[in-house]
Amino acid sequence: MKVLIAVDGSDCSNKAVEALAERQWKQDDQFMVISVVQPISQDIGVGLFQATGGTIEDQQYAECARYSGTAASRLQSLLGENQVEVKVVSGLVADSICYLAESWEADLVVLGSHGRKGIAHLLLGSVAEEVLKKSPCSVEVVKLKQKLQLKESETQKTKPSVTK
């Protein structure tokens, strides 16, 4: 199975990484951690000043590379043997995720989401919603407030009946 996980450095995407790492995977399951740099419009705002816009984009790229790298190394350290790739791409976030899912032939796209209360609960998040609509494969939405599961090995350690 090929699993593509999109990260943006937020708590919910970190939670998605942790949730994935807590789950069991086959040895040949592959992972790709991606983050997307959204280009700054050249028509308005800071984009008018190409030097400023370019500098900001460079900073964004460096930031994306940093947190996708951190997420990938965290995932690799928790998963162990599975192959973990990192990629930073530029484009519209949802479109880039779906395009990469298609070209890499991903079986599952994983996204983090805030599990908000109240009226904000109605909003899934524009990126998650867009990916759900356009994704060529299955999509998992990990909620920020969900409890993480212990790995089987850790669970067994906590169960006296199993360790006997």
């Binding site: 609960h121 899934l124 609509k133 356009k134 494969c137 999509v139 998992e140 939405v141 990990v142 969900q146």
Partner: peptide, 24 residues
């Protein structure tokens, strides 16, 4: 048909406290 997520999937995605996988 992909442009539409069913209202059921949408409600489950919005309100469920646990992770949700929408399988295609």
């Amino acid at each position: 048909a992909r442009v539409h997520i069913s209202s059921v999937s949408n409600a489950v995605l919005c309100y469920a406290d646990c992770a949700v996988i929408v399988v295609r």
